[in-house]
Simulated scan of single mutants.
Amino acid sequence: MKLKALGRHLLIELFNCDRKLLNDVAFVEKTLTKSAELAGATIVKTFFHTFNPHGVSGVVVIAESHLTIHTWPEYGYAAVDVFTCGDDVDPYVSYQYLKEKFKAKSAYLMEVKRGLADNINNTITKKITTGVLAGEK
């Protein structure tokens, strides 16, 4: 019996974002929450924290798993995880919305299929790069 993936986990790197937006906890919470709603997720609870002197971390717990974000405004960078289970939520909707709202000039995404213990070498299924990443010409 072949095990079907239990979930999709998008590991998202957002580069050269609007630094002011990345340090605005209210904006970060609103944006991550809206991205979950647009993707079709059922929001259970949110928690966000501002760091001193800068940066925001937060989580949106959804019935289908979670979305998390950690920002480094001083670098214009955000690390985002979008983990969804089932077929009713489209994590790529969140990815596109977050790229747009944080005004990322480039992005990198890796999709990992979760729960494939019998085929661990094939869990990374998709990699997407947009824009120009730091250090590339």
Results as ranks from 00 to 15, higher is better:
129 T>G: 05
59 V>K: 00
38 L>W: 08
111 E>D: 10
21 L>Y: 05
30 K>Q: 13
81 D>R: 00
48 F>C: 09
39 A>R: 00
37 E>P: 03
26 A>Y: 08
46 T>V: 10
117 A>V: 09
55 G>T: 02
68 T>I: 07
41 A>H: 11
99 K>F: 01
40 G>S: 09
20 K>D: 12
5 A>H: 12
10 L>G: 01
48 F>D: 02
43 I>A: 02
61 V>P: 00
130 T>R: 04
88 D>F: 06
50 T>D: 07
81 D>T: 05
59 V>G: 04
105 K>C: 04
99 K>Y: 07
92 Y>D: 09
5 A>Q: 08
34 K>Y: 07
75 Y>H: 13
79 A>I: 03
120 I>D: 03
19 R>I: 06
84 T>R: 00
106 S>F: 04
39 A>K: 02
36 A>F: 01
128 I>K: 04
126 K>A: 10
58 G>L: 09
29 E>I: 09
35 S>P: 03
127 K>I: 14
30 K>T: 04
57 S>L: 09
93 V>D: 01
121 N>I: 07
48 F>L: 06
97 Y>T: 08
75 Y>I: 02
128 I>G: 10
69 I>Y: 00
106 S>E: 06
124 I>Q: 07
119 N>Q: 13
16 N>Q: 15
60 V>S: 02
47 F>R: 15
124 I>E: 10
51 F>V: 01
115 G>Y: 03
33 T>H: 06
121 N>F: 15
137 K>M: 08
41 A>Q: 02
123 T>M: 15
36 A>C: 14
38 L>R: 13
73 P>W: 03
50 T>N: 05
81 D>I: 05
19 R>L: 09
9 H>T: 05
72 W>T: 06
102 F>D: 00
137 K>V: 14
61 V>E: 07
54 H>L: 11
96 Q>H: 12
81 D>C: 03
18 D>R: 04
122 N>Q: 11
91 P>L: 06
4 K>Q: 11
126 K>N: 15
99 K>S: 08
8 R>L: 06
129 T>V: 14
4 K>W: 11
51 F>K: 06
112 V>E: 14
109 L>F: 05
134 A>Y: 14
22 L>N: 01
19 R>S: 15
45 K>H: 11
83 F>S: 07
124 I>W: 07
12 I>H: 03
26 A>R: 09
121 N>H: 11
127 K>E: 13
70 H>F: 13
90 D>V: 12
135 G>P: 08
44 V>D: 12
114 R>K: 14
20 K>V: 12
89 V>I: 06
101 K>L: 08
63 A>K: 11
59 V>W: 02
62 I>S: 01
67 L>F: 14
60 V>D: 00
25 V>N: 00
132 V>M: 08
27 F>G: 04
130 T>S: 14
78 A>K: 03
23 N>V: 05
103 K>F: 04
111 E>Q: 14
98 L>I: 04
48 F>S: 00
96 Q>A: 13
120 I>H: 08
53 P>D: 06
27 F>L: 13
105 K>H: 13
63 A>G: 09
1 M>V: 11
104 A>R: 00
48 F>E: 01
34 K>E: 15
44 V>M: 12
131 G>D: 10
131 G>A: 08
41 A>Y: 11
78 A>G: 04
46 T>C: 09
